[in-house]
Design a protein around this nucleic acid. Sequence first.
DNA 1: GGTGTTCAGTGAACACCGTTCATTTTTTAC
DNA 2: GTAAAAAATGAACGGTGTTCACTGAACACC
Lengths: 195, 195
Amino acid sequence: MTNESEKNHRRAILDAARQILIQDGYKNLSMRKIARQIGGSQGTIYLYFQNKDAIFYALIDEGSEKLYGLYETILNTPAEPQEHLTRICQAYINFGLENPSYYEIMHITLPMMTERFPKEQYRRARRFLELTAQTLQTCAAQKGETLSEPYLEATLLWATMHGVVSLIIAQRIDIRLDRERLIEQTIHRATSHYL
Amino acid sequence: MTNESEKNHRRAILDAARQILIQDGYKNLSMRKIARQIGGSQGTIYLYFQNKDAIFYALIDEGSEKLYGLYETILNTPAEPQEHLTRICQAYINFGLENPSYYEIMHITLPMMTERFPKEQYRRARRFLELTAQTLQTCAAQKGETLSEPYLEATLLWATMHGVVSLIIAQRIDIRLDRERLIEQTIHRATSHYL
DNA sequence: GGTGTTCAGTGAACACCGTTCATTTTTTAC
DNA sequence: GTAAAAAATGAACGGTGTTCACTGAACACC
């Protein structure tokens, strides 16, 4: 190993992996490449991660944490619940589009190509849904209503957002369509029920 | 090679690839494994496909064709346009859930792990959207309305359906939720605007 | 200082991978 | 029956993820 960073090899490995992922794609991410990037040898990585998949799992965790943090920040800023709802939807989509490497790892890439993901980790990656469900409840409450299945409704909302984000990232959307308008319409349609 | 099937090595390779994909996942699909399965050698496959990615491309094409066929069958069966709309939405979701290997290859797997997909092929995989747009137009027409951007609206609908299907396939949906209800609600919410 | 123990770090080695291509086998055409 | 063409092979190349016997620096104790 080079020098400094006593215990931050883990961090360095994760950063290197993410950088390579962005730059060269999944197919070109290898343990040896990460090792070269951090200035160590391939064996070293195995002192910090059980295997290649574990690196992905760690990145997913980081991504989930990041998204959850964004939601918390928004919801801790005082505003009408409807405003909160719109903002978290925008935040979700922006998060996906601005962090495609996180997003792809979190949602698109993994299930097929690694062994099945530890359940506990899936659960944590879903924490933002609880915040969504709460927000939906608050919106409904303001209209004098109560949602009988807020968590299901949050999941519906999630699915819609995820659909747009993943199709955009995968470049599957017809280029003739205006991306901004598509996003705006998606949010509008998906949330209008609660406004 | 074994015997029979003069020119259907292509078919055999595709079937073998799909079977291995279902059984062992992407990570365990290799050219040598396909070769073993069809009873040939690894080099043989290269007589029928340029490389491993080309096998995926062919499977995507098959999947697109299959989906388009389903849509055509539904739309050629006389019914109210609203009925058509609901049916194609159901068909899309069912197609995804019943053919996860096709679906994952078509939408989830590829962009990250292979070189960028030929544009022409993406276009063909999107043909079903034109049928969707038409159906939406017909629905609107019956209400005396005209959609200014039917293709955008079809894409919105697609994104929503894709969101649910991909989250379900990836097993990301909370197991406490009722899957049937989630699907039913998704279709209901996504189409109610046009009914 | 010397000695023993620990442990992060190494990189050769193993069994695989996708892909190429000289060679062999099979089929076809005469 | 034989020559030409086509199809199929599998060894070889340079990569992969992962393991593990080994190194050598750091520390504790005498």
